[in-house]
């Protein structure tokens, strides 16, 4: 009896591949902003319930990332930055990524609702839905405003943290959300100025692909001018103190200078010939965009870290005017 030829069996995924599906670096940022929201609320919360809330918010973010990787596997495979992700690289089956995303979404929302409160759980459910369905399935492939509107998903974790601590979402919670929301366009468009070839290849209508680099540089400057006042606003609403004022004002000035340099530069004009997947190694023409991208991360981190430190150390706010 003739034996059938051996069919190579697919290599089973390692647990690290499933962890990678949840975008652990994004999760760490979500944890940081959610904790900031929770601490800034100045409300006593049982530390165990606070830790459970943070865990649920982080797992919810991981679930939406998994759903994103499931749906976007086709375009991820075409881009240098994302082609090594578990699904396009063939290490995890597409259906497994979907299952992980759905199960963890339900787990995180239900656990947050049953253990902390349903307002926080509802906001978490909305965030997952907004990122996975509104941004990933709809906006990302259909409009250059994708990251502007989709940025709301990344901006909501401090609001969820605040809701978990207090059961309410006052103006200051939404102010933290607005800071991240207004930060997103300049941050992502600076990155996409020197990775636009990848986006064009994948058919993703990022701003530099559809409107061109010059228009993108102008919009980065406009959004930066709109963004900095939002960073200063917590001083007027009784959220930030003198250290926050110093950090937000100085950092805001640097942010505007870097945005102006991007505007005056030719970032994104010449084709990007990078061969690696790094986000920071760019050719000379796009260095201004790279600088703004890198500083935008540092600035947002400093803003939230300062607010967090002020509230943990009991630094008095400047006094609410609004």
């Amino acid at each position: 009896m003739a034996m059938s030829p051996a069919v190579p069996r697919a290599m089973p995924a390692r647990w690290q591949d499933y962890l990678q599906l949840m975008k652990p670096r994004v999760m760490s940022l979500v944890i940081f902003t959610a904790i900031t929201g929770m601490i800034c609320a100045n409300a006593p919360i049982n530390p165990i319930l606070g830790a459970v809330a943070v865990l649920c918010i982080a797992v919810g973010a991981g679930a939406s990332a998994s759903l994103n990787m499931w749906f976007d596997a086709d375009i991820d495979a075409k881009m240098r930055r994302t082609r090594g992700r578990p699904v396009p690289a063939g290490r995890v089956q597409s259906a497994d990524a979907l299952a992980l995303g759905v199960v963890l979404s339900m787990f995180s929302v239900m656990l947050l609702g049953m253990t902390v409160n349903w307002l926080a759980a509802g906001l978490l459910a909305f965030t997952i839905f907004f990122y996975a369905v509104v941004y990933t399935m709809w906006l990302k492939r259909s409009t250059p405003q994708n990251i502007v509107i989709g940025g709301l998903a990344g901006a909501l974790p401090p609001v969820i943290g605040w809701a978990a601590a207090t059961g309410s979402v006052p103006l200051n919670a939404w102010l933290l959300c607005a800071i991240i929301f207004m930060w997103t366009p300049a941050h992502f468009w600076a990155l996409s100025l020197y990775t636009s070839e990848d986006y064009a290849k994948a058919g993703v209508p990022m701003m530099p692909v559809t409107a061109g680099p010059a228009s993108t540089r102008k919009q980065i400057l406009i959004y930066s001018i709109l963004f900095v006042p939002f960073c200063l606003a917590p001083v007027l609403t009784g959220l930030g103190g003198a250290p926050y004022l110093a950090v937000s004002a100085l950092g805001g000035a640097v942010f505007l200078i870097l945005a102006w340099r991007v505007f005056k530069s030719r970032s994104g004009e010449a084709p990007d010939e990078r061969q690696d997947d790094g986000l920071y190694d760019v050719k000379a023409g796009s260095k201004d965009a790279r600088n703004l991208f890198a500083f935008s991360i540092l600035y947002l981190t400093l803003l939230f870290a300062t607010l967090l430190a002020e509230h943990l150390l009991g630094v008095a706010p400047m006094g609410a005017v609004l």
Binding site: A6, V7, R9, M11, P12, A13, R14, W15, Y18
Partner: peptide
């Protein structure tokens, strides 16, 4: 070799999972 036999590498990955 038996095609249905799991390779040591695959067994390690499954065990880790």
């Amino acid at each position: 070799s038996d095609p249905n036999l799991e390779s040591p590498e695959a067994a390690r990955a499954r065990r880790g999972r």
